[in-house]
Computed example of a mutant assay.
Amino acid sequence: MTTPTAALSAAGVSIWLDDLSRTRIHSGNLAELIATRNVVGVTTNPTIFANSMTNPDDTSYDAETEELAKRGATPEEAIMEATTRDVRDALDVFRPVWEASGHVDGRVSIEVSPDLAHDTEGTIAQAADLWAKVDRPNLLVKIPATKAGLPAITASIAAGISVNVTLIFSLERYAEVIDAYLAGLEQAKAAGIDLSTIRSVASFFVSRVDTETDKRLDAIGTPEATALRSKAGLANARLAYELYEQVFAGDRAAALLAAGANKQRPLWASTGVKDPNLPDTLYVTELVAPDVVNTMPEKTLEATFDHGVVTGDTVTGAYEQSRAVFADLAAVGVDFDDVTQVLEDEGVAKFIDSWHGLLGQVRAGLDAHK
């Protein structure tokens, strides 16, 4: 019998897991999810690694921490060693998926330090370091879509590094991200790099948009405002897919695709439902379209496998309806440009907080082993 996750894959959605741990890799759980849940990739971020490396029930990092402490490693060096090892091992698990998919999937992402979110040159340098240290062709280096991140995306793509662009909330910033990708491909082409080896996804966040917008709608409190709750996230993502279709059908992209380049696929991130009144598979089943990625927390993945109802494409026929949502939001007084700026600022701040929390805990661990 076809499972909902198999149906989702058949509809053109690549299912990635938004989680990674050493235990998940070495226990065989990751391989099991590939076999039974149609998982074809993984995304990580500082919060995920913080949860994994500081889990008191997970002793898999202890020996490595002791060794690093004896070498006098800094917390930053220790995190780099541990996380690149985990990502490398996960990439090896996904290697058959990478080969079977024609190098489309089988991807694992690792993020540059959140402290570099507003540092272009630092991001460029660390992206190159991560690419070299992990040394796997199915890696994606995660770079945030901040203003400083945009030129770093271009430079990294130009150097032949595959990139996952993260923390995209607005259509305007998404357009800049696509432009940064195409500019990088143009530079790579001029440098004689094989464009077919470069891959990228653009991570467009969904549920956080509803959380922030709904908070403002609740404050407005009118029946018209209440009627718009939980509609902005889907509408925003659907219009992002429309933009993807338009740009990659244009002349600039066509010239690069003809030279062997790949499209930068949209990736739906932040797909765990935060409002208990909503269906727990909302940001999966309502964002089905060809050639997209949906990266899910395990809870959302299991909900989708258990009772997700996949009815085919739920994106491309909803563009006008999505535009109407934004017209209605403006009419009740929601400043959506401010919504997306707040979300970007908060997203960067949350990752920085997680990063510094992880640094502190790793520092304590190293000190305990000295």
Rank of each mutant, 00 (worst) to 15 (best):
S9G: 12
A10G: 01
V13G: 01
L17I: 09
T23N: 11
R24V: 09
R24I: 06
I25L: 09
S27V: 07
E32P: 03
R37P: 00
T44W: 12
N55I: 00
E66V: 11
L68F: 08
A69D: 11
E81N: 12
A82D: 00
D86H: 08
D86T: 09
R95N: 11
V97G: 01
V97P: 06
D105Y: 03
R107C: 06
P114G: 09
G122E: 02
W131C: 05
K133T: 15
D135C: 04
N138C: 01
V141G: 06
A145D: 12
I153H: 05
V165K: 07
L167D: 05
L171K: 02
L171H: 14
V177L: 01
I178R: 07
A180F: 02
A180S: 14
L185W: 03
A190G: 10
D194C: 01
T197L: 07
I198C: 03
V201G: 05
S203K: 04
E212A: 13
D214F: 06
L217R: 06
I220W: 01
T222K: 04
A227T: 08
S230W: 02
R238E: 08
L243K: 14
E245R: 15
R252F: 06
L256T: 03
A258Q: 13
A258K: 12
K263L: 06
P266W: 00
S270K: 09
G272V: 09
P276Q: 05
D280L: 11
Y283E: 12
L287V: 10
V293L: 13
M296C: 04
P297E: 04
T300A: 14
E302Q: 13
F305S: 14
D306C: 00
V310K: 08
G312C: 05
G312I: 14
A318G: 05
F326D: 10
L329F: 11
L329R: 07
V332Y: 02
D337Y: 00
D337T: 14
V342L: 14
F351S: 05
D353E: 15
D353F: 04
S354V: 08
L359W: 02
V362N: 08
A364C: 02
G365M: 13
L366R: 05
